[in-house]
Write a protein that binds this DNA or RNA. Structure first.
Lengths: 166, 166
DNA sequence: TTTATTAAGTTTATGCATAAAATATTTGAA
DNA sequence: TTCAAATATTTTATGCATAAACTTAATAAA
């Protein structure tokens, strides 16, 4: 009983505590997200023999014509350095991506899409948009925007690692 | 250009197609979900030296006093058989969980929480509810329910593998 | 009964994912 | 200049995660 839920302390409730409602909301967000993600993974696998991490890397590279350094890539995707090493390695082996040395910094490598990789990605990106469009077909413009802005309430929280005095 | 988006065919748009709005909505759902999930994983690690898959297994077992067979467990968590084998193995090693043979079926195993596992889980479950309550503190009862019901629009889609004639 | 099929679970091979340690290079200070 | 600290990346160890192959046991047919 160590949560300083002021509401609970000051207003003992007849019904369910707000924390339970929020917990249920989280489970719902998770369920929706996982369901769509599972569908995307499955279709990438079935239709392109690929994976979501690969797709994410290609998408990031497609956004920057000049290519990205390994570090930028892992920062952009919010995954660890070592993780990116492996994914890029396999993309290189498949000829989708190129590792170019950076003259000014012999530690760094620039990763760039090949022509093949670019085409490969564009086909998948269009298919991807279609899958999502289908899956979220119950949403009209207004509902989609409403849901999106409600979700924004979950942003801009002060989390542990962002606070000044940890 | 092979999507039969009737709206697009019948009403050429001045502005952005609905599919783009839905794609952005999906990216927003994903971002929110991943952000909360990352926080939960990190806290389970930092505060309990545990992981989300372990927590999920313990939660499922806690829901059924009698225990669950390996198959039921993997069905409930929607993960593969082999996956559950590994997670349970580590929980057994830590004394959180017990594997009991089923007399009527010598192929099957019943997995049950130990007393230690039960206590271990209850502490984590309470902490977990608190983390979520904090993270979603911007939502009052009404907003939480509204978001939850909007998310339900994403359910009850007919997906490939559920259709009658695939 | 034998045998074929189905079912429960584990094993194997592969791909993400992380944290921590290691390697190599650059930069900054003494 | 020299050498300590910081930076960019890879490597290692471990844990999920899946699909496919495998093992063992239960069930159904012949």
């Amino acid at each position: 009983m160590s949560f300083n839920n002021l509401e609970q302390q000051n207003f003992p409730m007849a019904t369910e505590p707000l924390s339970k409602t929020r917990l249920r909301l989280w489970l719902k967000i998770l369920k929706t997200s996982r369901s769509i993600e599972a569908e995307v993974r499955e279709k990438l696998r079935a239709e392109f023999g690929s994976t979501l991490p690969r797709f994410d890397v290609l998408a990031a590279l497609h956004r920057s014509e000049e290519g990205l350094k390994m570090g930028d890539l892992s920062a952009e995707l919010k995954v660890s350095n070592g993780n990116v090493t492996g994914i890029v390695e396999r993309l290189v082996k498949d000829g989708m991506v190129l590792r170019v040395p950076v003259p000014e910094d012999r530690r760094a490598l620039l990763v760039r899409l090949t022509q093949k990789g670019k085409e490969y990605f564009l086909v998948q990106a269009e298919a991807h948009e279609g899958w999502i469009d289908q899956h979220l077909s119950a949403f009209d413009e207004q509902e989609a925007n409403q849901l999106q802005s409600l979700l924004s309430l979950a942003d801009n929280q002060v989390h542990d690692d962002e606070r000044i005095n940890v």
